[in-house]
């Protein structure tokens, strides 16, 4: 990265960090949601974008993180920080235990297995007494939106720095090699199973932390909201819209799509949903490699960029 790029990123970070001081309460609340979604998109980026495994089950990590915090704080009267650690431990255990068999599956099969796991988890948690069954848990309220905002921003920063570190490390190269050609990676000495599980777990750690922050902020959670399956799709769309397998793409995707959808849903809710769907359809056809790729290439190729994308993938 060049000096001016680092400067730009730092300036953007400062601008974001200042929101609680100059922005409205509504903006801060929107910000918390958008930043946590960006963390989820970044978490997904590790397993989906860099390793090439399209997980539809990252909502499980989010839910485990949320329940980790809720159970620790409500049932055991432990501080929030301990709850976050508990949530992360749950997520890592899940990633390792289920990752080992499920990461053997490829392509659609992996996607479907993870989707099914996320359905199973909702149903299982609905039957666990400690987790409040399907009634849910109510956390002690903490009315401090600026704190939650800065926590979310901090988490997103750490997640992004981690990914940036990945792109220049041996581990990250191993993941990319797996994505590009798993067998080729193995014969070059990449321990593919270990790397995939590590990537899944790392992706789970960030998702769980996001879930933990969200639970404490919202102060209430039940299985349907904690393991919300549509969350999977949201984070994937945001990552893919921005540019999967890039350091900043998923953030751009998450923030821009959150803003658009917030703006539209303040008008008519169902129109916002409809628009969301149309954006996805159009994006897949016109810019299948995401905003990051589009911005990079549009300057060189101009409008031909879109027709070239279609020509490359049509029957």
């Amino acid at each position: 990265m060049k000096a001016w790029q680092i400067g730009m990123v730092l300036a953007a970070l400062l601008l974001l960090a200042g929101v609680p001081w100059y922005g409205s309460d509504v903006l801060v609340q929107f910000g918390i949601n958008a930043l946590l979604l960006a963390v989820l998109a970044q978490g997904w980026n590790i397993i989906g974008g860099y390793t090439g495994y399209a997980s539809f089950g990252n909502s499980v990590f989010y839910g485990l993180g949320a329940y980790g915090v809720a159970i620790a704080m409500v049932q055991w009267q432990l501080p929030f920080g301990v709850g976050m650690v508990f949530g992360v431990v749950l997520a890592v255990v899940f990633a390792v235990l289920l990752g080992i068999p499920v990461l053997r599956l490829k392509g659609h099969y992996f996607a479907i297995a993870t989707l099914a796991l996320s359905q199973v988890m909702t149903a299982i948690v609905s039957n666990v007494g400690l987790a409040g069954q399907n009634i849910g848990l109510v956390l002690p309220p903490l009315n401090n939106d600026p704190l939650f905002y800065e926590l979310s921003l901090g988490l997103l920063t750490v997640a992004t720095l981690t990914i940036w570190g990945l792109t220049r490390s041996r581990f990250g190269f191993g993941l990319i090699a797996i994505r590009e050609n798993e067998e080729g990676a193995a014969v070059m000495g990449v321990n593919t199973t270990l790397y995939k599980v590590l990537a899944f777990a790392l992706s789970g750690v960030f998702s769980a932390l996001a879930g933990g922050i969200h639970a404490y902020w919202i102060t209430f959670l039940d299985p349907d909201s904690a393991f919300d399956i549509s969350l999977n799709v949201k984070m994937i769309i945001m990552a893919v819209f921005g540019g999967p397998g890039t350091v900043l793409g998923p953030i751009v995707g998450a923030l821009s799509l959150s803003a658009i959808s917030e703006f539209l849903s303040s008008e008519v809710t169902s129109i916002a949903g409809l628009f969301f769907g149309l954006v996805i359809v159009a994006a897949v056809v016109l810019m299948p490699r995401g905003l990051a790729d589009m911005i990079r290439r549009l300057r060189k190729t101009g409008w031909r960029y879109f027709s070239e994308n279609i020509r490359a993938h049509r029957l």
Binding site: G174, I176, E180
Partner: peptide, 20 residues
């Protein structure tokens, strides 16, 4: 089976990063 999305240099760097 090159890693198509990587540069030629980084394709080979994977071999050096892992390997013997």
């Amino acid at each position: 089976r090159p890693f198509p999305g990587l540069s030629v240099l980084d394709n080979v760097a994977v071999g050096a990063l892992f390997g013997r």
